[in-house]
Amino acid sequence: MRINRVLNNNVVVVKEGEEEIIVMGAGIAFGKSKNDIISTDKIEKVFVMKDKNEYEKFTQIIDQLPEVHIAIAEEIITYAEKALKTKLNEHVHVALTDHLSFAIERIKQGFQLKNKLLNEIRVLYSAEYEVGLWALELIEQRLNIRLPEDEAGHIALHLHTAKMNALTMDETMNTTVILNELIEKIEQKLNVKVAEDSISYQRLLTHLNFALRRVAEGQPFDDVDQDMHKLVKEKHRSAYHMATEIGRYLAETHQYDLPPSELVYLTLHIQRIERNKGDEVS
């Protein structure tokens, strides 16, 4: 491979036809310049950024951020693709690298931002969250800086939204914020704080997440037998009333219209929390 552009000692751009390929490796460009040949045994990572804007953003990051931050981010991305068994969107090279560098510098300066959606992220994106925890260990090993667990949640969101065919970061954040609101409303109405590691909490959060996704994507919902609907409504009046209030809030505030069948399922989840709240309080 012949160098078309040196970005830093560890990153170069080569050209194959009209396609620009980013090549990474420790010291791969040391002492080299345009048109020099790079040694294939130094190549650790190769990827293409087809989006011109993303390519320009990435080259800016290479110029502006510490090389060690870029190397750590790329190591996390490589690990994540193996752990999640999926190829991540090229945007992750920009978004995650920029976020990590900012988070590291922020911690150095004594600033720490809480991740209010951490509990929801931990449940909804558990595989990505585990990668986030791994990333915190890596950063500590490389830089002797311990980022808070909140950052594992931020990393998880970046990884989730970088998965092919996933929602955008804005869409993912919006959905997670809404879920956080719904959980808080249910807890307030029941006067209980449900433990995040409880089965009731995880089932409720997962069910609500899938329901919101179905509404957003216009997917059909499973029907509920009318007799079952009537039975649930009569047997669990308080929980059903709460479910309808949640449904009304979603429709009026976020324009999510839950069908009657979902109100039945939501009632059962609320009833389970009510029944088990003595055992599942955090």
Results as ranks from 00 to 15, higher is better:
V264H: 00
V131N: 09
V192M: 03
S238T: 13
E81T: 11
E234F: 05
Y79R: 15
I199P: 05
L124N: 06
V48K: 11
E137Y: 10
T253V: 06
E128L: 10
L157F: 11
Q188C: 04
A26N: 15
A243T: 06
M169S: 13
K50R: 14
H229E: 14
E149M: 06
N276R: 12
T175Y: 11
T267Q: 05
S198W: 04
I28K: 02
T206Q: 13
I28Q: 02
I139D: 01
R122I: 05
L136F: 08
E149K: 09
I28E: 00
E20L: 05
S200R: 04
I62K: 01
E128H: 14
I155A: 04
K116C: 10
L84N: 11
F30V: 08
K52N: 11
M169V: 12
N165S: 14
L258P: 00
K45W: 01
A195Q: 10
Q271A: 15
A73C: 10
N8V: 02
M1W: 02
I70V: 15
K52Q: 12
E274Y: 15
S39L: 08
F30C: 03
A162G: 08
K230R: 12
G31Y: 05
G27H: 11
L157D: 07
N115H: 15
L88N: 03
F102V: 00
D41W: 12
D98N: 09
S198Q: 07
E140T: 12
P259K: 01
K193T: 12
T40W: 08
R122W: 03
A103N: 03
E151K: 04
K185E: 05
I43Y: 08
L204M: 12
E149G: 01
M228H: 06
V23H: 00
K233T: 08
N115F: 15
K193S: 10
Q188K: 09
L204N: 05
Q202P: 07
N165W: 07
K32I: 01
G132K: 02
N8H: 05
A239P: 09
L118P: 03
N174S: 13
N115R: 14
G153M: 04
L7W: 12
S261H: 07
L100N: 00
I61D: 13
I273H: 07
V14G: 08
K42I: 07
I38N: 04
Q226I: 12
K114Y: 13
K163F: 01
E105V: 06
L263W: 00
G247E: 05
L205T: 09
L190H: 07
E137F: 06
L7M: 10
E120Y: 02
E18N: 14
V12H: 00
H236V: 02
K57W: 13
N9A: 08
H207K: 00
G132I: 08
P220D: 00
E128R: 11
